[in-house]
Design a protein around this nucleic acid. Structure first.
Lengths: 296, 296
DNA sequence: TCAAAAATATGAATAAAACTCATGATAGAG
DNA sequence: CTCTATCATGAGTTTTATTCATATTTTTGA
């Protein structure tokens, strides 16, 4: 069966004009090339070179193979170079899912900067994984999941990125603004504005209201962070958002208060496969996440 | 170094969904495939499959190679099929040169018929070889030369095609028409119409006039056979043409006479490389030439 | 035309590789 | 948690590729 080695030999013979010189550039002996071609000719049952001429002249069959070499070898070499970039950490695939909805706010700027430094990394944000993101990571459908509850395993690593505090956001002059901190019962008469995801995935419910058996007066779901802040400022309700959202926002007209006496805190993690952990492109990305909105 | 074998394995694994099944279709063992992939991974220094999943899932690097396989293998298989056609005599290259100018008249119809039966033979008529056609045949620049003087060698074979007689063509009622045959001196007062090639390559001169030291009154060179016949019929001169030209012509107004008492005869040959002599496409072509203008 | 030079071919021996066999390890299903 | 399907591993074997030494062929230049 023909192999790439044969195509490389044919190209070298054409380039160098003789078996002997081609053999040199291929780091082979003239004999090796002669045997190689003879084997090809035996395999196909037709001569590739006219032997009555010196140097050898290609037959039509030989030319067909030389053409094939020209078609095929550049593609092979390109793939080869690409894999080499993967091997030394310059290239990789970074398909991200985010479990935390508000993370778009810091992630997009980070990605923007990152992709300039790592042009060979194929970046994507994949929606629609929901709570299945971590299994999808193990399966190889994803490469990184932004998550706030680490469940490391043999195959997966959870790299801590940064701590955050979820705080209640309310309009300037709201009655609750006089409190030092917020208790669950305080929200009984409030309209709570949240991202449009199921309650079980919202920490306010899971960790704050539900344990106390409190239900807010109403819930309103809004997609965009900026709109949530606008609604809060115009006294349409209150919201619970991580502190980075508020630090990064240029909007005004609201203040924040801790949830509970100690505040509701957490740590954001990047879940990755252990096998990707050493790669330069991955380490750089995690470093960029930690630096977050650092000056460009 | 990566080889086509590896690309075929990757494709089979993708197709079959597991090493074991892929191994079957490749007529290998599962172990062989496992070793093969491990070798590739060692070579590139990066995993091609995630091992923590069953069946194996491709990594980004693995996908790059699978893509390469898709690009490259169809081209390889196409070339392979083409060479197989060459090997069993269905395909070949037929680059023809003709030493005899009038041969166009029977060759073109023959080629027309031939190429319908042998679509995989690459046909061309290569002008500009002149007397160097036979060496060019040995060098592999040509594959067949129509020639009237056989000089066979170790490398070359001259296949006889058919006999012909070169006859003097003259207008009906021309004074020379009363002769049984023509002698050199008869042309002393005639205008001789020839193809536009050097005198040494025209048999009338080389074999008939020159030996007798006779020079015609004038020479006129004309490219096309039909025009030559027209000029003869309209008494602008006489010409020497092989008999097949006259047999095939539908024009009238002229008669022919032998040159010398026995006529000037020759045999047309097809010069080919001995290595092409066995090929089915070549034998068929020579047979077609011998049959000449046989009914289609 | 002949010998020297250059290029390729050949066969045996060696080196390298690819593959198989037998078995061990692991993941996923029930 | 066991069972089954799947993949990995290492030693041994077979196959393939390459080298070495030398023969053959073609080309070149007197």
């Amino acid at each position: 069966m023909i192999e790439l080695r044969h195509l490389r030999s044919l190209q070298a013979i054409e380039r160098e004009g003789s078996l002997a010189r081609a053999a040199e550039t291929l780091h082979l002996t003239q004999s090796a090339l002669s045997h190689q071609i003879k084997a090809l000719e035996r395999y196909y049952g037709t001569p590739l070179y006219l032997r009555s001429t010196r140097p050898l002249a290609l037959t039509a069959a030989g030319m067909r193979l030389l053409t094939l070499a020209g078609e095929v070898l550049p593609a092979v070499d390109a793939a080869d170079a690409a894999l080499r970039r993967v091997a030394d950490g310059r290239a990789g695939r970074l398909h991200i899912a985010i479990e935390c909805h508000a993370c778009f706010d810091w992630l997009l700027p980070v990605l923007d900067r990152y992709r300039q430094d790592w042009p060979d990394v194929e970046i994507d944000i994949r929606p629609g994984f929901g709570f299945d993101a971590v299994p999808a990571l193990a399966r190889g459908d994803l490469d990184l999941v932004i998550s706030s509850d680490p469940r490391a395993g043999r195959e997966l690593v959870f790299e801590p990125l940064f701590d955050y505090e979820a705080r209640l956001v309310l309009a300037d002059g709201h009655p609750l603004a006089r409190r030092e901190f917020i208790e669950p019962a305080d929200l009984r008469e409030e309209t709570l504005i949240t991202y449009p995801i199921e309650r079980s995935r919202l920490d306010v419910f899971a960790k704050f209201l539900q344990p106390a058996g409190v239900e807010p007066r109403a819930i309103r779901q809004v997609e965009l962070t900026a709109i949530i802040l606008l609604l809060v400022a115009t006294r349409k309700g209150v919201a619970v958002l991580p502190d980075w959202v508020l630090a990064a926002s240029s909007q005004g007209g609201f203040i924040t208060r801790p949830l509970g006496p100690g505040g509701m805190r957490g740590t954001l993690h990047a879940a990755i496969r252990r096998s990707d952990g050493e790669a330069a492109w991955m380490q750089a990305f995690i470093a960029d996440c930690r630096a977050k909105a650092a000056p460009a």
